[in-house]
């Protein structure tokens, strides 16, 4: 098992390196560099040339690559051109903001998704199942930006209940409870917008899994033995139905670290998604590369974690090789 994990980690690192390198090359091949933002009549070409030189863009690509890789191996992602501060500081400031949003979304959607999913699976074929599923599909089909604007329109502009942007109020608030409440209020709208598609997805997923289980011979057998419905559901059916959720957790990890661009943009949430998009438009190479590496790490770690958890949770999956 340990050898397996080590091998998987090494492969993961290799993948991250490959992704970063490819990204580096693509960025270099694309036209323009950070100095292209200085194209204005009052800035003389010689000045722009000097800026390019000071930022190191006059060097050949391979030299820039080695320089960057050397920095990276020392944990230095470089300095952002637009933010004019070390990339690592920006990530350290931004990642917690994204986590605050996405972890809440993650928990909310899992809780609600599982509860609703189980409930609907037991009501299979009923009116209520059809109505709720139809409604969820309706919400799922709505584009996030539109839903976000409508929610702002209702809850911020007209009712004035909830703030429509930022992570906290700009007033001085004292005391633990008021501060917490202030932050929760700011979370409600973006979390709602982000959770809805995930809730629908998880709900559907659980229903499908349970339906499969319900059709299994052991389930019928348990029923014929006369076990109560609840006991079968919670003791036998759920255990098997929830197992594939582990894979789902792994798949959600990139979202958790990467943030959500449009929602962050509309709600002025200072997260990774927004930072990354601004960086892309400004050709801010060090920041783009850093977010790419984080995204790659998230995918790789997500997959790795779910594989390992799976192996731990389900003895049948542990092959000889993994043992």
């Amino acid at each position: 098992m340990i050898a397996y994990i080590i091998r998987r980690i090494l492969t993961a690192l290799l993948i991250v390196w490959a992704v970063a390198t490819i990204c580096f090359i693509i960025l270099q091949l694309a036209p323009g560099d950070p100095a292209s933002m200085y194209i204005r009549p009052e800035i003389k070409p010689a000045v722009v040339e000097n800026i390019r030189k000071q930022l190191g863009f006059d060097l050949p690509i391979w030299q820039q690559y080695i320089k960057w890789l050397r920095g990276l191996s020392a944990g230095n992602f470089g300095t952002s051109f637009i933010h004019k501060q070390p990339v690592i500081d920006i990530i350290a400031n931004t990642l917690p903001n994204t986590l605050r949003l996405t972890l809440v979304v993650f928990c909310v959607q899992f809780l609600m998704g599982i509860v609703i999913g189980i409930y609907l699976a037991t009501k299979q074929g009923s009116k209520i199942e059809q109505t709720v599923n139809g409604f969820l599909l309706f919400l799922y089909s709505m584009p996030g930006f539109w839903l976000a604007l409508i929610l702002i329109l209702i809850f911020s502009l007209h009712l004035g209940w909830l703030p429509s942007s930022q992570m906290q109020s700009m007033r001085d608030i004292n005391g633990f409870i008021p501060i917490l409440w202030d932050q929760v209020k700011h979370l409600i709208l973006p979390v709602t917008v982000l959770s809805i598609p995930f809730i629908t997805y998880t709900t559907r997923f659980i229903q499908d899994q349970l339906r499969d289980v319900f059709a299994q011979p052991y389930f019928l057998a348990a029923k014929t033995y006369g076990f109560s419905g609840q006991k079968i559901l919670f003791k036998y059916a759920l255990k098997n139905a929830l197992l594939p959720l582990i894979t789902l957790i792994g798949l959600y990890l990139p979202f958790i670290l990467g943030g959500a661009v449009i929602t962050e943009y509309i709600f002025a949430w200072p997260g990774m998604g927004r930072i990354t998009v601004t960086a892309i438009f400004a050709h801010d190479f060090p920041l783009i590369l850093a977010s790419t590496i984080i995204a790659a790490l998230a995918v790789v770690i997500g997959n790795l974690l779910s594989d390992i958890l799976y192996a731990l949770a389900d003895p049948r999956i542990r092959t000889k090789e993994t043992l």
Partner: peptide
């Protein structure tokens, strides 16, 4: 200076 990247939201906050 409150930073709100979305124009629509900016306008709504002004109205509100």
């Amino acid at each position: 200076f409150k930073i709100i990247p979305d124009q629509t939201n900016l306008l709504m906050q002004l109205k509100a």
